[in-house]
Nucleic acid binder design. Structure first.
Lengths: 96, 96
DNA sequence: ATAAAGTAGTTTATAATATAAACCAAATTA
DNA sequence: TAATTTGGTTTATATTATAAACTACTTTAT
C-alpha cells in the first residue's frame, strides 16, 4: 500500500540539501546554508549524515586562506532521492 | 526557495493516515491499522495528534458490544494536506 | 601590534518525535 | 471459568532535529 520513506531523506533540511545538490555540479557549505536557510550547526550535522550514508561527498579545502567545504551528490544519492520521490507518490498520489 | 513542510504531516504514519482518509468517507481504527501497517500504540498516538490539530475527527462508539473508533478527515485536514503537497514540490520539483 | 569583529565551520546540550512495549477493559472461545 | 482475542491507551525508550555554545582562524580597525 504505502512504500517506506527513507528516513535519511525524510527530513526537511536533508531533503533541501539533496534538492540543491541535484541541480548543481557542487555546492559549498555557505551556499547550502544560504539556499536552505539552515543554521550552520544544523547543516553541519545533516551533511555529515548524508555523507555517512554515501549520498553526498564532502571535500575540505581552502579558498585563499579560508576553509571551504564542498559538497557533491553521488550516484547513490541520486538513486536514493529518486526512490524517495517514488515512495512519496504512494502517499500523495499522482497529484504532485 | 523551499517552502516549509508542515511537521504534523511530515511524518510517515500521519501522512499515511491522512492519505487513507482522503480516499474514504470514514475509516475505523482497525482499518487504518491494517492499511498503514502501524502498531496500535503508534496509531493511537498519531491520530490523537491529527485530531488535536483539527485535521481529523475521532468518534468513539460501539459496533455491537465492541468499541469502535471512527476517523474522518476535516476540511482543514484536506487543506493542510494539499498545502503540504504543494510545499513538497519545492523540494522535489519536476521529478515527481 | 593588538583588539574587535567576522567567517566557516564543529561539538554538545536539549527539546521534540517516533515507536514499541507494556498495559487495560471488555468480549469471545475453549 | 480460564485462556485468548479484540480494541484500544499509556508509558518508556530510542532517535532526531535543532539551536546554542564553542573552536580556529582571518580580516579590519585603532
Amino acid at each position: 500500500m504505502f512504500k517506506e520513506l527513507n528516513p535519511l531523506l525524510h527530513s526537511e533540511l536533508r531533503l533541501a540539501v539533496m534538492s540543491v545538490l541535484l541541480g548543481v555540479e557542487s555546492a559549498d557549505f555557505v551556499f547550502l546554508r544560504e539556499q536552505t536557510g539552515a543554521t550552520a550547526g544544523n547543516l553541519s550535522v545533516q551533511i555529515d549524515k548524508l555523507q555517512k550514508a554515501g549520498y553526498i561527498t564532502i571535500e575540505k579545502g581552502f579558498k585563499g586562506k579560508m576553509p571551504r567545504t564542498t559538497c557533491r551528490i553521488t550516484e547513490d544519492g541520486i538513486a536514493a532521492f529518486e526512490e524517495y520521490v517514488t515512495a512519496l507518490r504512494s502517499y500523495i498520489g499522482k497529484g504532485i
